[in-house]
Nucleic acid binder design. Structure first.
Length: 259
DNA sequence: CGAACGACCTGTTCGC
DNA sequence: TGCGAACAGGTCGTTC
């Protein structure tokens, strides 16, 4: 579910609610998830995002790292409120609790100590990421879409935003990265920034499941130009939006103006 | 090295 | 209506 804009939305909302709060209790409701007991009693010292990871810094210097994968959600609610369906874990704070909801149970979380080792990937919203992309792409013969979604190269772009970013560049998802010009890459970087920032302003894309920390839908689904719009007219050239499977993922693009 | 595909899970939608 | 297949925002491991 969540890509960079959704995770950024959650981080901002979490920051407004849980910074310097004490984790008073913790209930794990899914055996796939595990955390050491001593998370209890810790205070939250920071909330940051690394790609699609939510990183919660604790007083003792360790970090709680959460990845929501496909259907994971976080929900802020009062302690007495009924737990929602598919609730997998609860952090009790003072008067409220943060609940991890995840129907498909793909979400992961772990407690990590020590610094973050550099792994060479750039955040999709890092300034000047075009230069990094050119350096990584020059020798690769692989489709541009899979390159943009490779979290080991650039962090934060998933299937929805990859389709939307590519549409705005006028480049085909199947284009080989090795053949792109520096102008193409500047174009890609511009589209990444425009799409992701707008989506953050919209608090994400609610096509089906996605809700923010307070249970509200995002607004970016109204801005989608190709994702999920198979057969509809391309607003740029009037051709019909086409859908095909690329690397096992649904891929929407306009065959008329994405070359 | 990278591409292709299945696995991990559950729920929803679509076609017959 | 009923049933099974296909599909879903992500990543990881295996095989070719």
């Amino acid at each position: 579910m969540p890509e960079l804009p959704e995770v950024e939305t959650l981080c901002r909302q979490l920051r407004s609610k849980i910074l310097s709060s004490r984790i008073a209790g913790m209930s794990i409701l899914d055996s796939r998830l595990q955390l050491p007991e001593h998370v209890k009693g810790q205070r939250v010292s920071s909330v940051t995002r690394r790609g699609k990871w939510i990183v919660i810094g604790l007083d003792d210097g360790k970090r709680l790292e959460i990845h929501l994968r496909m259907t994971g959600r976080l929900l802020w609610q009062e302690k007495e409120a009924t737990l929602p369906m598919h609730c997998r874990l609860v952090f009790d704070l003072c008067s409220h609790q943060v609940v991890i909801v995840d129907p498909r149970r793909f979400a992961t979380l772990s407690l990590v100590a020590g610094g973050e080792g550099p792994d060479g990937a750039v955040d999709a919203l890092a300034p000047g990421c075009a230069e990094t992309l050119i350096a990584k792409a020059c020798k690769r013969r692989r489709p541009l879409k899979s390159f943009l979604m490779d979290q080991g190269i650039i962090r934060g772009i998933g299937n929805i935003y990859a389709c939307e970013i590519l549409y705005r560049t006028g480049l085909s998802p199947r284009r080989e990265t090795a053949g792109l010009s520096p102008d193409d890459w500047r174009n890609v970087e511009k589209a990444i920034g425009a799409v992701l920032k707008k989506a953050i302003d919209c608090r994400g894309t609610s096509i089906s499941d996605w809700r923010d920390l307070f249970g509200n839908k995002g607004e970016y689904q109204k801005e989608l130009l190709v994702y999920g719009r198979e057969g509809q007219k391309c607003p740029r050239c009037g051709e019909r939006v086409h859908r095909e499977r690329l690397l096992g993922r649904g891929t929407w693009f306009c065959p008329g103006c994405q070359m």
